[in-house]
Amino acid sequence: MKKLFALVLALALCLSLVSFSHADDLIKVGVVNNPPSESGYRAANVKDFESVFTAENGYELNTFYSIKNDEQLQAASGFITDGVDVLMISAAETTGWDEVLTAAKEAGIKVYLFDRMIDVPEDLYEAAVVSDMAKEGETAVNWLLAQNLPEYKVIHIQGAMGSDAQIGRTGALDAQFEAGTMVKVAQQTATWDEAEAKNIVEAVINSGEAFNVIYAENDGMAKGAVAALDEHGITHGVNGDVIVMGFDCNKWALKELKAGNWNYDGQCSPFQAQIISDLIKGVKTSDVKKIINEEKGFDAATITDDDIATYGLGED
């Protein structure tokens, strides 16, 4: 009886080995990313990678999510030891990656960076697919200039100071303030906090100062600002007194746009997986290492339901 049991076990083991060897025709990829709970952006980013690097598309996906750089480093080393074919990284911090990436290179593993750059020599990775936050700001400000308002009195609500998104999205608007084409009514950071954004706008309204544009560096803060406008009976959006601008393209924010409550929403695309997959399979090639992910800006007047379905992040 015992022998029979052992035989069965041995058979099962062999079978499992066979099934494992089947997986060998798949491209084994390791993804090191931040956890989906970090933000709506990240949740969409993680989902994007999980939906592109599937067995149907010819991949065997291994993932690791952490906001801690040292844990990410360990996981990356682990993937190298496991013998992945491709390693993809969105690092928590820009430093400390030299050693791991050199090891990957020596092992013949292709490395792709996405969403965030790392401070390493360019020869250590194949390509980096990233967003250009400064360009996002420029796109938004150019859209605003194209509205041809007689005057621009702007309340500028910033994200957490020093973050990439804040620096990028602030730059273009600051240039306008300096050039004198737009007037800075208030420029305050709400550190991505919706309630704080509401307080900032409320303070301006109570002071009696006039304004006609709200430029919030993410959707949540734009929503907070609009709550303050609503309470004080100031109209906003299409045909309103105040132009409302947000960033990130959450699904619910694009719906506000469609309803005409807001005017503009700038995209920060979390969709890098398809580009990387194309690069791996040789469908696409790139002359430059740093590939800027193309990003759009949506106008309330032209947005369609298809746009919302395609580009909207998260649930509605």
């Binding site: 550190t191 919706e194 949540g220 709550a227």
Partner: peptide, 16 residues
């Protein structure tokens, strides 16, 4: 109150 004010919840920033 915090949720109803904004009609949204951001688990990272609510009453931070």
């Amino acid at each position: 109150i915090g949720v109803c004010r904004l009609q949204l919840i951001n688990h990272e920033t609510l009453l931070l």
